Amino acid sequence: MRDEEEGPRWGPAAGGAPKALVVLLHGVGADGFDLIDLAPGWGKAVPGALFIAPHAPEPCDLAPYGRQWFSLQDRRPVAIAAGADAASGALFAWIDGQRLALGLGWDRVAVMGFSQGAMMALRVGLHQARGAAAILAYSGALPCPVPPGPGPAVLIVHGEDDEVVPPGASRNALAAIESAGLSVEAAFRPGLAHGIDEAGISLGALALQKALAASP
């Protein structure tokens, strides 16, 4: 990922050197600015955390604006898995560089994603970043097999009325992650379409607080 893809950052709310890092991964057709507004609220739960919302490396090929982690022109599971695999190496290297620059261990890093960003959070967090503290996956899907635990604590949140990514995708992810022996919690929000509601935001704050609130 190039420097111009780094995206907006916020925090730490407490000031001083960051004691944790939270990476926010946007969905297709958006960019890092789409999720950085979550930082001030979540920063109250983890005041020592720096939040960074990188821009995905590719222009969106489904719209004349926004970015994408990989193309969704072909939505067959095998194509999505290949796209997530191809994009995960550079994303992991970028996150790893950020946490090294901050002097943090992987146990002080959480990766959150929405929609395609949730796919990337799961792909990177379950495979390359096995030592990360937490993965927060909103309105996404699992693009890869799940290695057996241990691994990061996982939070899955999905709207029951999502017409973009069916909630069944997150139910399948939940079953696979549970079967692998990882710690996972899930919430399926009635009446919610493809988005994040206040309850989901609160659940995210609690997950980050559990994983990152303690000083290293």
Rank of each mutant, 00 (worst) to 15 (best):
G97I: 04
D107K: 03
A133K: 00
D85G: 05
I156E: 14
L126M: 07
L102C: 10
Q73M: 13
A132V: 00
A141R: 15
L182A: 08
L122P: 08
A101K: 05
A133I: 00
M120Y: 04
A175Q: 09
A129V: 01
G97Y: 05
P166G: 08
V164Y: 11
G140E: 08
E178H: 07
V165M: 09
D96Y: 00
A118L: 08
V154W: 06
L136H: 07
D162Q: 12
G151V: 02
A173M: 10
G113V: 03
L126A: 08
S88Q: 03
G131K: 02
R171Q: 15
G97R: 02
A180Q: 10
G83S: 07
V124M: 03
D85I: 02
L100N: 10
G89S: 01
A173V: 14
M119V: 02
P166I: 01
R123L: 04
A79G: 10
L122V: 11
A84H: 08
L136S: 09
R171V: 11
H127Q: 04
A79N: 06
V124G: 06
E163W: 08
S139D: 11
P77A: 06
R76I: 00
C144T: 15
A169M: 15
M112I: 13
I156D: 14
V78M: 03
V154D: 10
H158R: 13
R123G: 07
G83R: 05
R76K: 10
L142W: 12
L126H: 07
R76T: 12
G125V: 03
I135Y: 04
A173D: 11
V164H: 09
A118P: 10
G140Q: 07
L136K: 04
P147A: 04
P143W: 14
I135C: 08
P77C: 07
L102Q: 11
A169W: 12
R130E: 02
P166L: 09
A81R: 15
V146R: 06
S183L: 05
G83Q: 05
G159W: 06
G105K: 00
I95N: 00
P143M: 14
A129W: 00
R108K: 05
